[in-house]
């Protein structure tokens, strides 16, 4: 029973991190049909920023990570993606691989490929004991931070004018422009949001792993992409649910599979993804009524 509850908490906490990743990927995919694999480096650069400021006052280090990552995201948009904005999705995908490769190798040049250990937010190593279940503070903070962020982004998208414009642009970019929504602005805000989300992921990830290594963000971006596919491309709540689902399924499979099969856990996860693609190519979380109009 304890194991079951503990696993459930693990599942939510891992899924929460994936959900933010997926939201960042899903947002940019919706707006500009860009599968932004460079988001992995947004996270990684955030972690390296925190590593360099490991001895600084934490709120300052966290703020620096957010600023650095948002500036990076905006710069990448301006220099790498704007020139190819109207290209087909395949070109955009290749551009994002190029950016990702460039940034990753830049980190290797600057810091070397060997992982670097550092300690950020050591207080999160504490845990609170509820009956027999021991909940690490980091899990609670992860769940709280991701919920807050998701709620914040959700409110932003629902209540602000820019947010509504972004949602409109995410489902029909051309129509939004025909109605006067400024492409440059929406895309820049999209990258800025993806930057903020990546920075938050990097802070939580840094607190969890205490390790900076150049390729560490890759898996998060990959899962983020898979999650948006599961959730339905361009469907933001779907992407969030997709991220939660992938994280939760990974953890649950790890928990219930017999030892010999656990090695193939990823294969099971991706088999599930393929099944989703075959059976519901429009994504798991898109209602039939909405689908009719597509």
């Amino acid at each position: 029973m304890t194991f079951a509850i503990q696993t459930l908490i693990d599942a939510i906490s891992v899924g929460a991190l994936y959900a933010i990743s997926a939201l960042g990927i899903g947002l940019l995919f919706g707006i500009m049909r860009l599968v932004n694999f460079a988001q992995s480096e947004f996270v990684t650069v955030g972690v390296y920023t925190l590593m360099m400021l490991a001895n600084a006052w934490f709120p300052l280090a966290a703020l620096a990570a957010v600023v650095v990552v948002v500036l990076l995201a905006l710069t990448v948009e301006r220099l790498a993606f704007r020139p190819v904005r109207n290209a087909d999705p395949a070109t955009l995908l290749i551009a994002s691989f190029a950016v990702s490769y460039f940034l990753q190798n830049g980190l290797v040049l600057l810091f070397g490929a060997r992982p670097i250990g550092f300690d950020v937010l050591p207080g999160l190593g504490q845990a609170i004991q509820v009956e027999t279940v021991r909940i690490p503070l980091l899990n609670i903070v992860t769940i709280a931070a991701t919920s807050t962020l998701l709620l914040g982004v959700g409110l932003f998208l629902r209540l602000t004018r820019t947010g509504i414009e972004m949602r409109a642009a995410a489902v029909d970019f051309r129509m939004a422009r025909l109605m006067g929504v400024k492409a440059d602005r929406v895309i820049a805000v999209g990258f800025g949001l993806a930057g903020i989300m990546s920075a938050v992921v990097s802070i939580l990830y840094a607190a969890q792993t205490g390790t900076a290594s150049p390729a560490m963000g890759l898996q998060l971006a990959l899962v983020g992409f898979v999650a948006t596919v599961i959730g339905g491309m361009g469907n933001l709540p779907g992407a969030v649910l997709g991220g939660l689902a992938v994280g939760a399924i990974s953890v649950l499979l790890q928990a219930v599979l017999p030892p010999d099969l656990r090695v193939f856990r990823e294969a099971f996860v991706y088999a599930a993804v393929i099944a989703v693609l075959l059976l519901r190519p429009q994504g798991l979380f898109r209602s039939a009524a909405e689908r009719e109009r597509v």
């Binding site: 194991f3 503990q6 696993t7 693990d10 599942a11 906490s13 891992v14 991190l17 994936y18 899990n139 990830y205 969890q208 390729a215 560490m216 890759l218 898996q219 998060l220 899962v223 990974s250 953890v251 649950l252 790890q254 928990a255 030892p259 656990r262 090695v263 990823e266």
Partner: peptide, 18 residues
């Protein structure tokens, strides 16, 4: 006994709970 993947497992929470 349990396994994890050094790069793909962003968290080993589940292994730890076990």
């Amino acid at each position: 006994r349990d396994t994890f993947h050094g790069v793909n497992d962003t968290s080993i929470a589940s292994q730890i709970s076990r």
